[in-house]
Computed example of a mutant assay.
Amino acid sequence: MIYSIDVTIEAPVQGTEIADRVEDAVTNLFPDAEFRREPDRFIAESHSLDAFSDTLHEQEILDTARREFFNGRDDEGFSFSLKKQPAFEGVVNFAVGSEDELGDIRVRVDVREPDVESFIDYVAPPTEDGRPVDPDDR
Rank of each mutant, 00 (worst) to 15 (best):
V96C: 13
A33R: 02
S46R: 02
R108T: 14
I2C: 04
V7F: 08
I120E: 05
E10Y: 04
F42P: 10
V13W: 10
A51S: 10
V22F: 07
A19G: 07
Y122F: 08
L102A: 11
E10H: 04
K83R: 15
E99K: 15
D129M: 09
D40S: 13
D137F: 05
E117Y: 05
D129R: 14
D40K: 14
L56D: 05
E23N: 11
D75L: 11
R106Y: 00
A19K: 12
Q59W: 05
D50A: 13
K84P: 10
T55F: 03
E101L: 10
A95E: 14
D54H: 07
S4M: 13
P86E: 13
G130Q: 07
E38A: 01
I61Y: 08
V13A: 09
P114M: 09
I43L: 10
I105P: 00
L49H: 02
R138H: 03
E17T: 01
E68C: 06
A19S: 12
E38H: 04
F69D: 03
R36Y: 04
P132Q: 02
P31G: 02
H47E: 15
G97F: 03
I120R: 02
D74K: 11
E17F: 05
P39Q: 02
S53R: 06
S118R: 15
T27G: 06
R106V: 06
D74Y: 09
V111P: 08
G130N: 13
S118M: 11
H57R: 15
D129N: 14
I43F: 00
D121A: 03
R73Y: 04
F52A: 00
T8C: 08
P31E: 07
R36W: 01
A44W: 07
I120G: 00
M1F: 01
A11P: 03
D20Q: 13
D54S: 09
P39M: 05
E34S: 13
P132T: 08
F80R: 10
A124Q: 02
L102S: 12
V123D: 06
K83N: 12
I120M: 05
D134K: 08
I2V: 01
E45K: 14
N93T: 15
E101N: 11
T27N: 04
P125F: 04
D136A: 11
T27V: 00
V123S: 02
A65W: 01
T8K: 14
R21G: 00
A11Q: 03
F80L: 12
R138I: 10
V96T: 15
R67T: 15
D136C: 09
R67S: 11
V96N: 14
G130V: 07
E58G: 09
P132S: 13
D75C: 00
D54Q: 14
P135Y: 09
T8H: 00
A87Q: 10
S48W: 01
D20W: 02
E34T: 11
M1I: 12
A44F: 05
P86S: 04
E89H: 13
D137I: 09
I61T: 06
P132V: 09
G72A: 01
A87C: 07
S53N: 05
A33S: 11
N28C: 05
A11D: 04
Q14R: 15
L102M: 13
